[in-house]
Amino acid sequence: MSDIIAPTKQAAVEAASVETVALMDQLAGTDIRAESPLYHADLATVAKQGPKAGGVTLQEHKLLGHLVIRGSQDNAGFLAGARAVLGFDLPTQPLTAAEDGTLSVRWIAPDEWLVILPGREAFELENRLREAMSGHVAIVNVSGGQTVLELSGPNARAVLKKSTPYDVHDRNFPVGKVVTTVFAKSQAVIRRTGEQNWELVIRRSFADYLWLWLQDASAEFGLVIKD
């Protein structure tokens, strides 16, 4: 592979016309049953019947809207458009996140962010972003392919230490930091949301495996499921 070639920066072109991408509201009416990746684990029943106290608490934040946003930090029209719609800057500092109410944005890569917001708001946000942003950008709805787990409690960190080789110590992983890393034999986007709270964004097809893994890794501390 040639990496000697200097990337040639091209001037941002005018706002793309709508037809250049296929926009699609992928949500059905609320009368249609939607199943999160952990639907079959029936966490609601586990929460009702399972232990109410333990060292680790697990909750699925299901059926949220997940949008991948791609764009160059050199593209002013991209950054400005994002700011205009989100009301705050995209977190351009590596491994940081930003949030406002129910909407949160995670830095994934220098040209990639993951926005999570209530599922029913995702399509509207995508439209507004596309309208506001110019130049070479991409927005991809991945809501069906991911889910959010929240791991909390005094032993949550101990479970993380079994699961990821990433350093989850306070000195390296303060509240607000976000990393994409290895999680068991899968991967996760991990964001620290509180002193004892950690958010894991995981892929749908791995959800059953990770649910098994988390039950096993938490067993010695007592696992509480929250609905």
Binding site: P7, G145, S205
Partner: peptide
């Protein structure tokens, strides 16, 4: 990333997103 960075294109996996 290494040969044709001048091409304006983004790739995202949507394998898990679509049934």
């Amino acid at each position: 990333q290494t040969e044709w960075p001048e091409l304006e294109v983004y790739f995202s996996s949507v394998t898990d997103h679509w049934a």
